[in-house]
Design a protein around this nucleic acid. Sequence first.
DNA 1: CGGCGCTAGTTGCATTCGCAATCAAACAGC
DNA 2: GCTGTTTGATTGCGAATGCAACTAGCGCCG
Lengths: 150, 150
Amino acid sequence: MSPALDPRQRAWARFVTAHALLVERVEAALVEAELPSLDWYDLLWSLENAEHGRMRMADLADKTVVSRSNVTRLADRLETAGLVVRMSCPQDGRSTFCVITDKGRALRARMWTVYRKQIEGLFGRHVAAREAEELAAVFERIISRLRSKT
Amino acid sequence: MSPALDPRQRAWARFVTAHALLVERVEAALVEAELPSLDWYDLLWSLENAEHGRMRMADLADKTVVSRSNVTRLADRLETAGLVVRMSCPQDGRSTFCVITDKGRALRARMWTVYRKQIEGLFGRHVAAREAEELAAVFERIISRLRSKT
DNA sequence: CGGCGCTAGTTGCATTCGCAATCAAACAGC
DNA sequence: GCTGTTTGATTGCGAATGCAACTAGCGCCG
């Protein structure tokens, strides 16, 4: 929310509240389906996309935009749930790999069926293909700036 | 994050991570300036825009997209900080008004100078005016759907 | 009027989060 | 090779969150 006169500020305000509302709904749908939260999904998805289904903790934190300490705890919970395992990193004794298990892959896939339906119904439905391209482009611009700088 | 083939899914994924990165930066800037968090700002801003600078707790929760119990605690903290006061609602004995104080208005204004700078530098800078209009339109569509339905 | 249900708000409790401190391994300079 | 510094990961602790239970006031219907 912001004093919305400038179109950019208005866009920002809507961006923020749309995000809050959408995430709220998606989370509700996951609870409804007795599935874990989006945090778990993001972590699993990041791993599944990585080489050999594994990533170092710090990279995982960067990728999922979560604090280091938080990704540690998240991985703890996922590990006790059998969705990931930790392995020591041969190249660097300080690092530890987080590796997705088959069970982890299976759960992510199951979550995706719910997640996908929500995205389409709540978001995609209201965005034309052209607009989607444009949104993606704008956000990619912003993301790459934020990731590169400082 | 999602299996990004469909442009809409790609847009969604970028939308989510851009949001996370942007909010992270804005929060950092507020901490840097020794100011409270965005939650506080949103609540104060909602109040400042309301008639007589006041709102009932439930309306405030809806407006700021925060759970009821959470808005109670948030208001507690703001109240002890002298930024808002609670007043009983004459029309409905169950409701309580949350009213922004002069100190609250002053703080919000001060936060806005920092917040605004961040929005412009991190977001607005990368969005053309036309694009901003389009983003605002898309998100407004989504928001009104989400608020009206169910 | 009296009881039943509904709504507004708060609170208890368990979970989660963020920050600072800690520990261990790597690395740089001498 | 030894020491000081930096980096990766974890942990302790206080703060914040979500959910469910609880209290109190409104309003309806008999």
